[in-house]
Nucleic acid binder design. Structure first.
Length: 379
DNA sequence: AATGATAGCAACCGCCTCTAT
DNA sequence: GATAGAGGCGGTTGCTATCAT
């Protein structure tokens, strides 16, 4: 058996760690959408990511998968988690398998932060669990989730471990995880994700250094926090978007596919695009200007004036190469070998962010202008 | 307004399990 | 059957936002 004494999966000194940037996310998404994820260890290199394969896998499974259901857990879900935890213990992946769109990590966090305390407090108040379980029984069969439990929760007194038992073998994090899940939903999902990187939300959210910005972006632009009382501040600025949860695709994305299925974000797209996405948040707020080293960067810096004058759409078009066909000629290798973490966007770029609608228009045009590419299954 | 405490959650770490050779 | 590699899982950490004082 493996385990002890094994070599680490990667050289920790050679990989980027910490919060994921938007460009990294999009690289990962687009890569997996196009090529799948047969080999997590090799994926980062192929995708041009300076990340550990495990980190990529985790990021994908927990946050980027298009079938994730984000947002608050319903009372029914929470009750069912309690019930299942009672039956299975800390078998988070097993529990998560009963909640389509939920991840083991998410459930684990919910348990550790909410449910355990709830149970403890109930017990400490002299309330026995039978009361709790009785309420669970009455509600768990009708989750508000668009995709209800795969199996009926049944009678809690009869042992959920049997009732929910999976087929032998690996439990999977996803309810129907397929090791060859290359049937990634669609390109629209990427559009959705791009939409969610609404820079205005980020602007309202982010005020610190790179790491903070990245973290804040991840939280505020993508997800509605579990705890609405403490959660994302993305609404503080009065900017909210329909379907605020980036990953709230459950049951919905299939219909969305038809709308824009012909638009596929090209995996080998313009590097500037990725950098621009990073630039939608003030990642560079604390960076030294020396980051702007080459002509392109200098040009972008000079373009800040356009942004300032409100000509964002034009700027975006320019940056996306929508004005020139030559930018579409960038090849795979250019993209693959480009460090996703590299920043080309000027400092304080995002302090001058445009209105979201303009972003959306720009993104829409981006997707319209980029035709689907042949499916190159091998890099 | 400033500061410390607490809550929430994304990400990492190390071990385990499975599979291929 | 032994071994190595990769994926997966559960526990834990570290960072940020929010609350309380």
């Amino acid at each position: 058996m493996g385990g002890k004494g094994r070599a680490p999966c990667c050289d920790k000194s050679q990989v980027k760690r910490g919060p994921w940037s938007p460009s990294e996310d999009l690289r990962l998404i687009s890569f997996i959408q196009k090529h799948g994820h047969d080999n997590w260890r090799a994926l980062p290199k192929q995708a041009g990511l300076l990340r550990c394969g495990k980190s990529c896998r985790l990021r994908w499974i927990n946050y980027l998968r298009p079938d994730l259901k984000r947002g608050n857990f319903t009372k029914e879900e929470e009750d069912s988690i309690i019930k299942l935890h009672e039956a299975w213990g800390n078998k988070w992946s097993k529990i998560a398998s009963q909640f389509p769109g939920r991840t083991d990590n998410e459930i684990k966090n919910v348990w550790n932060t909410h449910l355990r305390k709830r149970l403890v407090s109930k017990n400490s108040c002299g309330d026995d669990q039978s009361k709790e379980l009785s309420s669970i029984t009455s509600t768990s069969s009708s989750s508000s989730s668009s995709a209800s439990f795969q199996r009926s929760s049944g009678n809690p007194s009869e042992g959920a471990a049997v009732e929910f038992e999976h087929q032998s073998g690996h439990e999977s994090t996803m309810a129907n995880k397929d090791p060859n899940e290359h049937e990634l939903p669609n390109s629209t999902t990427i559009q959705e994700k791009l939409d969610q990187y609404s820079p205005m939300e980020v602007t309202n959210q982010v005020r610190a250094d790179d790491a903070k910005a990245s973290k804040a972006l991840t939280i505020s632009s993508s997800f509605s926090s579990h705890d609405s009382s403490k959660g994302s501040s993305s609404s503080e600025g009065g900017i909210s978007r329909p379907g605020d949860s980036l990953f709230d695709f459950t049951g919905a994305y299939e219909t969305q596919i038809s709308d824009k299925a012909e638009f596929e974000i090209p995996f080998e797209s313009d590097c500037d695009f990725w950098n621009m996405l990073d630039g939608l948040v003030p990642f560079q707020s604390n960076h030294e200007p020396t980051l702007l080293q080459d002509d392109d960067q200098a040009n972008q810096s000079s373009n800040l004036g356009l942004v300032e004058s409100g000509k964002w759409l034009s700027y975006l078009e320019s940056e996306l190469g929508l004005e020139q066909t030559t930018k579409t000629e960038i090849n795979d290798q250019d993209f693959l070998m480009k460090d996703a973490t590299e920043k080309l966007v000027p400092e304080n770029y995002c302090d001058k962010l445009p209105r979201p609608a303009e972003i959306d228009q720009g993104m829409d045009r981006y997707f319209e202008m980029w035709p689907p590419l042949p499916d190159n299954s091998v890099i």
